Computed example of a mutant assay.
Amino acid sequence: MLALLHTSPLHVPVFDALRDEHHPGLELRHRVDPDLLARARREGPEAVAVDVTAALRRAVDADVRAVLCTCSTIGEVAERAAAELGVPVIRGDRPMAAEAVATGPRIAVLATVESTLPPTLALLADEARRADRPVHARAQVVPGAWTRFEAGDIEGCARLVAAAADAVTDADVIVLAQASMASAATFTTTTVPVLSSPRPGLAAAARSARAPLG
């Protein structure tokens, strides 16, 4: 079984659909805690580190083989909690970051909330060090997109993000920093590769959950 920690209930059907399409038979257990993101936005991710660990601990029982944190803002603090939990904690955006670094050095990062930018840029720098590849990442928040997402206007949010992606002309790859932005890729017309985290993140977590014990 794979447990997932989300900061929005809107992620649940997205990951269920990806499981049904790519990982049939994988049992998912969802835990949603919007307050973690709300506080991290106000106070910074480190301010909620203890609460993230507690939320992850509540998500883990004898049947859970791994945990996937789908929120990029708290992903770093979630990843660090693995040592206390006894099971792997997969940061949902790490596989996407590794792919971005492998694609090219000029990385454009789009986000809908400011709090996502520092951890995402730090993650890209970490993956660049691991791969021993130079990168130049720049980031921007898409105005108005988060307001639409919070209101439940998923398509409106996606179209704003897609328009911002289409305006990027001097990058080798575009990173959609948050899982909530993934559907924007369906509306883009740019020839620059556009990466999002849900599919590769779930794939990495599924591999971990299905890995032999011991």
Rank of each mutant, 00 (worst) to 15 (best):
R80I: 03
A81G: 05
A83N: 03
A83E: 13
E84M: 09
L85Q: 00
L85I: 01
G86F: 01
G86A: 02
V87E: 03
P88A: 00
V89L: 03
I90K: 05
G92A: 08
D93Q: 13
P95L: 03
P95K: 06
P95Q: 01
A98G: 14
A98Q: 13
E99Q: 14
A102R: 14
G104D: 11
P105S: 05
P105M: 02
R106L: 06
R106A: 03
I107K: 05
I107F: 01
I107P: 06
L110I: 04
T112I: 08
T112D: 02
E114C: 08
L117P: 11
P118G: 09
P119M: 01
A122R: 12
L123N: 07
L123M: 06
A125K: 14
A125V: 07
A128S: 10
A128P: 12
R129P: 00
R130Q: 14
A131M: 00
D132Y: 08
P134R: 02
V135M: 02
A137L: 10
R138Q: 09
R138A: 12
A139T: 01
A139D: 07
Q140S: 15
Q140K: 15
Q140E: 15
V141S: 04
G144L: 09
W146Q: 08
T147S: 15
T147H: 14
R148S: 02
R148M: 11
R148C: 07
R148G: 00
F149V: 05
F149D: 02
F149C: 01
A151S: 08
D153L: 10
I154C: 10
I154M: 13
E155Y: 08
E155F: 06
G156R: 13
G156P: 14
G156M: 11
G156Q: 11
C157N: 15
C157E: 15
L160P: 14
V161Y: 05
A164E: 05
A164C: 06
A165E: 00
A165M: 02
D166F: 01
A167M: 06
A167R: 14
T169L: 11
D170K: 10
A171M: 10
A171E: 13
V173C: 02
V173I: 03
I174L: 05
V175K: 05
V175L: 11
A177S: 12
A177K: 11
A177P: 08
Q178N: 08
Q178S: 07
S180H: 04
M181V: 08
S183H: 11
A184Q: 06
A185F: 03
A185T: 14
T186A: 14
T188A: 11
T188I: 10
T189C: 13
T190Y: 09
T190F: 04
P193K: 02
P193C: 08
V194E: 12
V194N: 08
L195Y: 06
S196L: 06
S197I: 13
S197V: 07
P198L: 00
P198T: 01
P198W: 00
R199H: 14
R199N: 11
R199E: 15
R199A: 15
A203R: 15
A203W: 12
A209L: 10
A209P: 13
A209N: 12
R210E: 15
R210W: 14
P212T: 12
L213R: 15
